[in-house]
Amino acid sequence: MFKLFKSKKVAKNLAIGLASATTASGLGLALALNVDLFASDHGCYPAKYPWFHDGLFNTYDHASIRRGYEVYKQVCSACHSMRYTYFRHLVGVSHTEDEAKAEAAEAMVTDGPNEEGNMYQRPGKLSDPLPSPYPNDEAAKAANGGALPPDLSLIAFARNNGTNYIFSLLTGYHDPPAGVEVKEGLHYNPYFNGGWIAMAKALYDEVIEYTDGTPATESQLAKDVTEYLRWSSEKSHDEKKKLLLKTFLIFPPILALFYVYKRRVFTVMKSRKLMFNPTKSSGSGKH
């Protein structure tokens, strides 16, 4: 049957050449076009930072989550809500139950209606979400010059390259390069898409004081609050990493045993020999 293509050698070579040229040039062009663009167009690409939790089996740094909560509470929460994080989530993660209850009680929550049909204020409970700074998005926009401060509960997942991006953004504020016109009410930050962000630089050295005595440098503050936001985006992370470790411990021995068993089942079939003895009556087929 291969004779067919030998006799059509020219056509075959032509076809091979054409097909591979198209594919190769297509792929080559595609790769050549996949070059980096100017940072000023789409924002700087954040550097990769050595987060402890990035390791295959590593948990969050819970002391850092606790400090990050302090940063969020004293700095970020003035503008940003965290609707999907509840005080009860802090228990056993960064705070004891009593501490979390005390944190919750600091917030005043509107509840009701009571028996007279009126809404009333009560201190927060563990089952309440972290308090929002504004009653609704419109109020938030009005108070921030038209820009809506995003909800932070899922922010580490809601931005590409979440943790590195947040850390870079928080520490990336500086004066615009020479020749770039300053925009009213906006702040220059090369990591933000477009370069101009409505949020002012919020973290400075010693802007708050940590209760555990860690020196509150700008990068320490940014690192801790990023760790806290990362935790908020995925509260099941530590459990997940533990399951991953168990997967790595349980599966290889099972697979090794199963592999041997599979080979054993196939030994007879793999080691048999088939003989084909053409006779006059059966072996006249053309091949």
Binding site: I254, L255, Y259, Y261, K262, V265
Partner: peptide, 26 residues
């Protein structure tokens, strides 16, 4: 033959799938 082979490949899949899900799920 193929029941055992399929089961074996199922277990290989489970392993790859779990590692992939737990490491790169998000």
């Amino acid at each position: 033959y193929y029941s055992v082979k399929d089961l074996y490949v199922y277990f290989v899949f489970f392993f790859v799938f779990m590692v992939f899900t737990l490491k790169y799920g998000y």
